[in-house]
């Protein structure tokens, strides 16, 4: 019953068209509904939880996720998943996801929705103000240090490599040395 990747693709109509060999959609019995993932678009991804690095397939239709399951061609997990990986679908279909920037003012008891533009401008101004106020070109010994000890950052092992690289580059350009993340704890 092991389905090859090729068979899987054929079955769900991802990339290969008409002829279906071996695992074909045989005339379905009366009870068999059309398969939910038939003709859905497939995108491969890697699980965002632990560092085993299992492969998943995200099935989408009409720009929305309709199913997620293990990638049978991934040499590590071979289509299998643990409970966290199997739950990927609910990272998308989730009422708790925050989808608008939020702001909490000094002394406030609540969040309020704000725009991206406003948030980013505010943050840029704060970075500059704090950096300017705390920047050290030289230390007490008169050595060049060009840093700020007034801003710190933690995170993120949840970012992609490219983002990690960009993030450290950006933070270091602002002069941060208090840069830490999950690897330290």
């Amino acid at each position: 019953m092991e389905l090859s990747r090729r068979g899987f693709l054929q079955l769900s109509g991802g990339t290969i068209g008409a002829t279906i060999v071996g695992v074909g959609l045989k005339p379905a019995a009366a009870y068999a509904e059309p398969l939910a993932i038939q003709y859905a678009k497939e995108t491969t991804t890697i699980c965002p939880y632990c560092a085993v690095g299992c492969g998943l397939i995200v099935h989408t239709r009409g720009g929305e996720v309709i199913n997620t399951e293990g990638d049978p061609d991934h040499p590590i997990n071979r289509g299998t998943l643990c409970s966290k990986g199997a739950a990927l679908y609910q990272l998308r279909h989730n009422d708790n996801r925050i989808t608008e920037p939020l702001y909490r003012a000094k002394g406030s008891k609540e969040w309020k929705k704000v725009s991206w533009d406003w948030s980013l401008d505010q943050i840029a101004q704060k970075i500059k103000a704090t950096r300017d106020a705390t920047f050290m070109e030289k230390n007490a010994k008169g050595q060049t240090v060009n840093r700020t000890d007034g801003i710190a950052s933690v995170g993120s092992a949840a970012l992609d490599n490219e983002e990690c690289y960009l993030f450290q580059k950006l933070l270091r350009s602002w002069g941060l040395v208090y840069i830490e993340h999950q690897a330290r704890i």
Binding site: K126, I127, T130, A133, T134, G150, I151, A152, S153, V154, G155, S156, A157, A158, L159, F167, L171, H181, Q182
Partner: peptide, 8 residues
């Protein structure tokens, strides 16, 4: 004074 908690 300022702090980023990015994905943590």
């Amino acid at each position: 004074k300022g702090f980023f908690s990015w994905g943590q």
